[in-house]
């Protein structure tokens, strides 16, 4: 490891911008971005499943609140949601004295909350669309076998809906990664935050932002590859026979 660092240092000896110091900023930024995006996607995904089922419910008091939620969070910019949550919580009287403040004081948790609520809203709509597109025949067949509505949902509707939702959800993951670039406006040192720092420090916009763009590109390729693999495996029955 030390030998590797020494070699890296020798490689960077001629470079005034990309020193070990600035690379460590980018490194920490990468870790923050990945954490932020991964955790918010995970919670968003888990929350979206019951929300998507509820969204298709016939009962109005379940259907409408969920629709209102997805409508608001898909209908307003993520940046505004982030501002409202980060600066808005401060105006709740006495929040600084509660246990919640330990979480909300740092910018990470407010950003995580904003990202999670946003991605959960989009994912809910993606799943809802996929559930609605279940062929009627499959449900009728399940009924004919004597399955209860709950069992039909668990065994027939959801598995095929998830498969159908996979390509659209892959896009959502990539969008979320790119949307996370706004985290730096609330002082989080994510990848973009690190790039802005290097830019301001060395007055070198091209070097700083091109480098960070390359990192985002690599992350995007990794996500694309993962989803292509999943689609190949899970949607094999839909591929044309060769």
């Amino acid at each position: 490891m030390e030998a590797l660092i020494n070699r890296l240092e020798a490689l960077l000896a001629e470079n005034s911008i990309f020193t070990l110091q600035t690379l460590s900023y980018y490194g920490e930024g990468l870790s923050t971005t990945v954490q932020l995006v991964f955790i918010s996607l995970l919670i968003g995904l888990v929350a979206a499943v019951p929300l998507a089922i509820g969204r298709g419910s016939k009962r109005r008091f379940i259907k409408w609140p969920i629709f209102a939620y997805t409508y608001v969070f898909r209908g307003t910019p993520l940046l505004i949601q982030l501002y409202l949550i980060y600066y808005g919580v401060v105006f709740v009287d006495g929040i600084q004295e509660t246990w919640l403040w330990v979480l909300l004081k740092e910018p990470f948790v407010p950003a995580l909350v904003a990202f999670t609520l946003n991605t959960a809203a989009y994912t809910t709509e993606i799943f809802h669309g996929a559930i609605k597109a279940t062929p009627k025949g499959e449900i009728e067949a399940a009924r004919a076998y004597g399955m209860s509505p709950a069992l039909t949902l668990r065994r027939i509707v959801l598995p095929s809906a998830f498969r159908r939702a996979l390509p659209a959800y892959g896009n959502e993951v990539i969008f979320m990664l790119h949307a996370s670039a706004i985290a730096s406006v609330v002082t989080i040192m994510d990848l973009t935050g690190a790039a802005r720092f290097v830019y301001a420090r060395f007055y070198a916009p091209f070097d700083a932002f091109l480098f960070v763009a390359a990192i985002y590109l690599c992350l995007t390729f990794a996500i694309l590859y993962l989803f292509r693999y999943l689609e190949k495996k899970l949607l094999a029955h839909l591929q044309p026979m060769t």
């Binding site: 600066y87 401060v90 002082t187 720092f197």
Partner: peptide
């Protein structure tokens, strides 16, 4: 690090 001095003062007031 903040974009403007105003954002900074807001977060100072927010403790």
């Amino acid at each position: 690090r903040y974009a403007t001095a105003d954002d900074m003062v807001l977060d100072m007031e927010a403790e």
